[in-house]
């Protein structure tokens, strides 16, 4: 049995005329040492992971599974401007921080962890990728405790950030850092499990048997709209908090972490999939 021991949820909409919220003060309280040469993506990862782990002594071999669609985009922009526009060799810390694994390094260092440390991406579905990876490792017994997060950074100006992602210019953007602390074993906290189905009808049948009044259903943003609508109609799903429709590339993480961090009763089901690759059902137990 995999349990969600704690969760943290940071979702900050970014307005067109505003600067990004400073994270420095929050990090001073959460980090055990003042890290230099870190970028905003690393700051967001530290903020979310430290909040999730606050007040707990993690096992040294606790795994870190960090997902992101865009990664450290702000630092990557600075590095590319140095290199291409200014014809300068990138500064060493800018270059090193282009790697997704740098954020996991600082998270591990801040929390004193030495276990597996992975950065995994799947555009529009990074949470599903990291959850699949961590659950495989936990089911096989390679990991008994894991911090699982999704981090998405916004780089100003917003118009350009939308262009890069081929998003409409009127969409509200958000930054996010959403984390779950998972642990193998029994306990009172919510459970997390993953069911995989080759056929859609099998998924529907399973949901039909498991569904209870008050449960929530999320359809992944990457799913076919018609299939998602079929499910939503069939299971009369309640809406989840989504910060007034603000978007980032790992919205599923925002939904799950908000639900796990809250005190609502009932189950949450997250569905993702495709008729060719099959269907995944992530289930946060009541």
């Amino acid at each position: 049995m995999i349990k969600i021991v704690s969760a943290s949820h940071y979702l900050q909409p970014v307005n067109d005329d505003a600067a990004l919220t400073s994270l420095e003060s929050a990090l001073k309280d959460l980090c055990r040492e003042p890290f230099r040469r870190i970028d905003r993506f690393i700051q967001l990862a530290l903020l979310g992971s430290a909040s999730c782990a606050a007040g707990r002594k993690l096992r040294p071999n606790c795994g870190i599974y960090l997902g992101s669609g865009l990664g450290p985009i702000g630092n990557n922009i600075v590095t590319q401007e140095q290199l291409i526009r200014d014809a300068e060799i990138p500064k060493p810390f800018n270059f090193i921080n282009t790697l997704g694994s740098s954020a996991g390094f600082y998270v591990a260092r801040n929390l004193g962890l030495q276990g597996q440390n992975f950065f995994i991406s799947r555009r529009g579905a990074s949470l599903q990728a990291v959850l699949s990876a961590v659950m495989a490792d936990m089911l096989l017994g390679f990991v008994t405790q894991a911090l699982v997060g999704a981090v998405e950074e916004v780089a100003l100006p917003l118009g350009t950030h939308r262009l890069r992602q081929h998003l409409p210019q009127d969409i509200l953007l958000a930054e996010g850092s959403h984390w779950l602390l998972l642990q193998s074993g029994a306990g009172d906290s919510r459970s997390l499990d993953l069911q995989r189905f080759a056929e859609f009808t099998a998924l529907e049948d399973f949901l039909g048997s498991a569904w209870q009044a008050g449960d929530r259903l999320c359809c992944a943003t990457s799913m076919d709209n018609r299939v998602a609508d079929t499910l939503r109609q069939g299971f009369a799903a309640g809406a989840l908090p989504d910060a007034d429709g603000a978007f980032h590339d790992s919205l599923e993480a925002a939904w799950l972490a908000a639900f796990a961090a809250g005190s609502e009763p009932g189950n949450l089901f997250l569905v993702d999939g495709h008729r060719q690759r099959g269907w995944s059902l992530f289930h946060l137990g009541a």
């Binding site: 669609g69 865009l70 990664g71 985009i73 990557n76 922009i77 590319q80 401007e81 291409i84 526009r85 997704g100 991406s121 555009r123 350009t160 262009l163 890069r164 992602q165 590339d249």
Partner: peptide, 8 residues
């Protein structure tokens, strides 16, 4: 625009 392609 720097980083006209982003993501992995």
């Amino acid at each position: 625009i720097p980083m006209p392609l982003c993501g992995y």
